[in-house]
Simulated scan of single mutants.
Amino acid sequence: MVKNERWGRPCPDTRDWSIYNERLVRRGELYIALDFLNRWDDLLAEMNAGKCGRPYKYPEPFIVWMACIHIFLLMPYRQMEGFVRKLAEFIPRLTAADYTTLFRRIEQLDLSLKVTPEFLAEDVIIAVDSTAITVTNRGEWMREKWKVRRGWIKVHAMIDVESNQILGLEVTDESVQDDQMFAPLLEQAVQNCGEEHPVYLVLGDGAYDRNEIFNLLEKRGILSGIKTRNDAATHSTGSPYRAECVRDRNRLGGYRMWAQKNNYGMRWKVEGDFSSLKRIFGEGVRATSREGMFREIQMKVNWYNMLIAAVA
């Protein structure tokens, strides 16, 4: 049944469900994306050219595909070896790698954020926020009964509200405040967008209402869509641009009109990305070391961007 209302407001459903369903079905093709088999020998020759020591036996795309299996199917490394060994019986070109090799090669993968610029708008609008990822599967009873607390890790992200791609990512522990990660996130986002897709506007909640952030946005020529406090000063107290934004909000008649002018409602897109990420990959991590947890989150975010690119 089609919903015609959303939160009490008219919301006509204009989505073409046949196209949308096909896009979601196409995501499953990534599980068996074995195009690299046709270039197996050529890829190995390129990787081993001029290499000192033992030559590579498995090309990089194969390791990337195995990382996909590890992340999507939550498959341990020993089971991954058996999975490929059995699959190789049906695909003669495929060669199974032992679990130690898989672990070492996946650990060495380049985890820099992968973004597809052609899906970005001419003027990019970015939303910024953070979310918590649990580090243990222990429930509330265990935590309350035995007073065991392992905390959580924090995922800070900037996303493009148009394509839903994650443009900036920082993973920290729970003690790091959101505003402290704004500058490195913005640097990543600007770099990933490139000159052809400049960042036009940044949307953020009150956690980013800091003079330093407004000054950084002004320096880069980026408009602010950051929510300021209701009692914020209208004169400069370290950031003339922040004071200007506060005066602009007051001239418009308050928060509601300011939010409408700056498309602040689009900030929920970052919450939607976090929700999708957790539904697909789970709300926790399986790694036990701090470095392993951070790498696991980075791999999940990269594959999330690849899923978006695959169905765009």
Rank of each mutant, 00 (worst) to 15 (best):
W7F: 15
P12G: 04
T14S: 13
R15I: 02
W17V: 00
W17T: 00
I19K: 14
I19E: 12
R26H: 07
R27A: 15
R27E: 13
E29K: 08
I32H: 13
D41S: 09
D41I: 01
D41Y: 02
L43G: 03
L44G: 00
L44A: 03
E46T: 08
Y56M: 01
P59C: 00
P61S: 09
I63Y: 01
W65C: 07
W65A: 07
A67M: 09
L74V: 06
L74H: 08
Y77P: 02
Y77E: 10
R85Q: 12
L87Q: 06
F90G: 02
A96F: 04
L102N: 11
R105Y: 09
Q108C: 06
L109R: 03
S112P: 13
S112D: 14
P117V: 03
E118R: 15
E118Y: 04
V124M: 07
A127G: 05
V128G: 00
A132R: 13
T134H: 08
T136W: 04
G139E: 02
E140L: 13
M142H: 04
M142D: 03
E144L: 08
K145P: 00
W152K: 04
I153A: 01
K154V: 09
K154M: 12
K154L: 09
D160K: 09
V161A: 08
E162C: 13
G168N: 13
L169R: 02
L169P: 00
V171F: 02
A189I: 06
V190Q: 06
N192Q: 08
C193Y: 00
G194K: 06
E196S: 06
H197N: 04
V199A: 02
Y200F: 14
Y200E: 01
L201S: 01
L203T: 10
G206T: 14
E212D: 09
R220W: 11
I222Q: 01
G225A: 09
G225Y: 06
T228I: 05
T228R: 02
R229G: 14
A233R: 03
H235C: 10
T237Q: 15
P240D: 10
V246L: 11
V246N: 07
G253I: 04
G254K: 02
R256I: 03
R256G: 02
K261H: 03
R267D: 07
V270R: 06
E271W: 06
D273G: 05
L277I: 04
K278D: 11
G282N: 10
V285Y: 00
R286L: 12
S289A: 10
R290E: 07
E291L: 15
M293I: 09
F294M: 11
E296Y: 05
E296G: 08
Q298H: 08
W303Y: 10
N305G: 01
